[in-house]
Design a binder for these strands. Sequence first.
RNA 1: GCCCCCGUGGCCAAAUUGGAUAAGGCAACGGGCUUCUAUCCCGUCGACUGCAGGUUCGAGUCCUGCCGGGGGCACCA
Length: 545
Amino acid sequence: MIQEELRAALAAAAVAEGLVAPDEIGLEQPANREHGDWSSNLALATSKQAGSNPRELAQKLIDHLEQQGLDHVDKIDVAGPGFINFHLRETWLYDVLRHVVDVGVDGFGRNDLGAGRKINVEFVSVNPTGPLHAGHGRGAVYGDALAALLEWSGYEVTRETYINDRGVQMRTYADSLAARKAGEVPQEGGYHGQYIIDWANDMPDDADPLEWGYAHALADQREVLDQLGITFDVWFSEKSLVDNGELDASLDRLKDRGMVFDEGGATWLRSSDLGDDKDRVLVKTDGEYTYLTPDIAYHANKFSRADELVNVWGADHHGYVARMKAAMAALGNDPDMLDVQITQMVRLMRDGEEVKLSKRSGDIVELREVLEEVGVDAARFTYLLQSIDSQQTFDLALAVSQAKDNPVFATQYAHARICRVQAKVAEAGIERLPLADVDLSVLTHEREIEILRTLFSGPDLVVLAAKERAPHRVVGWVRELASAVHSFYQNPDCYVMGDGVPPELTQARLWLIEAARIGLAAALGRLGVSAPDSMWSDEAETEFA
RNA sequence: GCCCCCGUGGCCAAAUUGGAUAAGGCAACGGGCUUCUAUCCCGUCGACUGCAGGUUCGAGUCCUGCCGGGGGCACCA
């Protein structure tokens, strides 16, 4: 593609000028179009070693570049402090269009960043002691979208969740169910939610509260995750690690490596030697393990199956990161291969009012209720709108509104509009000719060029988003593409067919919107959001007509 | 007290990970459109990027110290 050619040309120019070119030559698409289509900071980055001022150096480099007779390049100039700006002919964007059509929805954005490395993405991982809440939805959708993004980028991905199916919380939960079943109030520190009362009512008299409660909670969580379109490759049981001796084995390994000591009747991990603020208890004085201990065995297990680990944790677990990394280092794993992503909190709003409690139960709002109110597409898209580093406001009313300020609607609508135009054109008996037979050089309108430029930036953005573990960047991109499509669609000078639109232009525009459709469908698909052919059901359509 | 995240026009926010003149949306103001099936399109107004230093050719972005908001600091999970 064009940027490789330009990079190679810049590298050659640097050599010709007697400079050592940086490993990665800076080349980007400037925000301001007056600065050309591509811009390099090569002269700025090397002016020191050249011992000359950046603008003069840039001009010398340009002299070398101009001798190379580069494809698509119209002119090259120096700007600002010493940027080298390439102004291209539109022909390079027609190559972009052909490429997008060639790779299609499945191939668009696909890249080899991961080079087949195995990566394990662990998310959700909540106690099987109750339903998933609205807040859990963010981590769930983020983890799933991140996994898809990594698959897109050439990783071999395992989607995994960890079930804390043993220990104090499970017993407390079972006791709370039993208490409600007996018509009593759960003890201090027990589970007091409305759902415990409901579930206790459903529990058969002869059921074991621990087993029944576990199965019920798990089934409940799984049902909602299924609705959300999230499927795990592995549901990993904490209990299994204890039962099969893996936990003791990892504890022994820590002891053998001298990372453990006894004090005050408890067993401690020397985590303070490895970056944690303090040492941590592994085995309590009562002989019970802390939460950390099986989790260490679990992470060791994951490292035996994958090259890299990603954990998606809620903000309330951030204090736990340092000790887990320390534990991995203590076991001889590379703590840098454990990447913990912390999701900040979600505030639910409806029409400007904060929603704290469930309408149905009066408890915390369940994820199920969010899905019922806004649907899967809107829920997924909305959860993914912002970086997980910042707190989120999720407006339920906005997520279902059919207006352009609803990002989900606007984005899906762009896809639907393209489909409607394609259908309309087909109905008119106009057939789309093979791309090779179509002259794309008639695509010169600003709106057309904007779509092509956005499409071009997609694949690079996918790589960046995968590196940053930031699916919201893909959301931002697809919104931008949708916006470019709407502007094109709305502009009377850009009609695909109709009076005054020459057949050649119709043909070129049909391919243009098909390329845009591919970009939209590819990105939405990876985010787990549908790309509809129409925004309105058949009934509504009839009504409107 | 210590740790993590955030702080960008009146409000919600983006910024190619250190680039040029800091996107876009809401609201306000001024025009226009009624379509290839949909509540739109174009323009104007509005920002010492929380504060103070530092590094750099260049800082919203990196470093230090403050201020403000949220979350966390268990032999709970």
